[in-house]
Nucleic acid binder design. Structure first.
Length: 260
DNA sequence: ATGTCACTTTACAAGTGA
């Protein structure tokens, strides 16, 4: 089984590349963030042509998440109790048999000092409280998506430059650790302890070309999921302008493989 | 830090969010 979280930054702009990902990597499930489309305009037909059904929680212009899969989920729910930003479509949960997947697009936070940064911290607290009180961590649980937080120094191209900056503050990283302390492992790190493994490069300033990346797109899994996880990698090539039809997202897909 | 991108509006440019 293969599961791929991907921040697409508009599913309509990324449709050809999503279809290509389907053909290239054959993910059974893709968890999308920032679909940026109202539900009545979601491209169900184009995805059905490559064998995907889509569970969607979208809004126009901002945010929006979707879980698309070859086999339809048994159960889907949207949002989470205690969300400090009600009305923003950022979290959805799908159950596939014994496996539950939470797909999350965490508040960006803009910059330290901006009110949005305080919202981000409150959001992370509320999200962790909800995950801890809603799910059994002894069961198979995945929490994945765009966390907008780089967990540690290996996850930023220049830790000194990023120290104290939004996406890499101690306050954010402490909150991600608190989520992991519920009993969720960073699945990529089980296979790749090395630094320089990034999932996001800003569109501006030629960041990709210069190697100015961050790893903020994470796949966390409970112990029963971690045991089944045989590989996690990031499809860095997908970030290249030349990698396929249309322009790239500023995020690359994470690709995780599990024993059946 | 900022060599961009996507979306929206009463729209043919500029603001917003990332």
């Amino acid at each position: 089984m293969r599961i791929s979280p991907w921040h697409v930054n508009s599913i309509r702009q990324r449709l050809a590349r999503l279809v290509a990902l389907r053909e290239r990597e054959r993910p059974d499930i893709v968890c999308l963030q920032e679909t940026k489309v109202a539900d009545d305009l979601f491209p169900h037909d184009a995805l059905a042509e490559v064998g995907y059904t889509a569970a969607i929680y979208g809004q126009r212009t901002y945010n929006g998440v979707a879980i698309i899969s070859a086999k339809a989920p048994d159960e889907v729910s949207c949002g989470f109790d205690g969300d400090p930003t009600p009305g923003s479509c950022r979290v959805m949960t799908a159950r596939f048999g014994d496996l539950t997947i939470v797909n999350a697009y965490i508040v960006n936070g803009k910059e330290v000092g901006d009110p949005a940064y305080e919202v981000k911290l409150a959001w992370l607290d509320a999200f962790t409280t909800w995950v801890g009180s809603t799910f059994d961590l002894d069961e198979q649980l995945i929490v994945c998506g765009d966390f907008n937080v780089a967990p540690d120094e290996r996850d930023v191209h220049d830790p000194k430059r990023w120290a104290g900056k939004n996406l890499f503050t101690e306050a954010e990283r402490t909150r991600v650790r608190a989520l992991m302390d519920l009993g969720l492992a960073d699945l990529l790190r089980l296979h790749h302890p090395e630094d320089g493994v990034f999932s996001y490069w800003d569109y501006r300033a030629g960041a990709f070309h210069r190697g100015w990346g961050l790893r903020i797109d994470l796949m966390l899994g409970s112990e029963p999921v971690a045991r089944r996880c045989t590989e996690v990698r990031i499809d860095r090539n997908e970030r290249k302008p030349t990698a396929g039809e249309g322009a790239p997202s500023d995020h690359a897909p994470v690709i995780a493989t599990f024993d059946d």
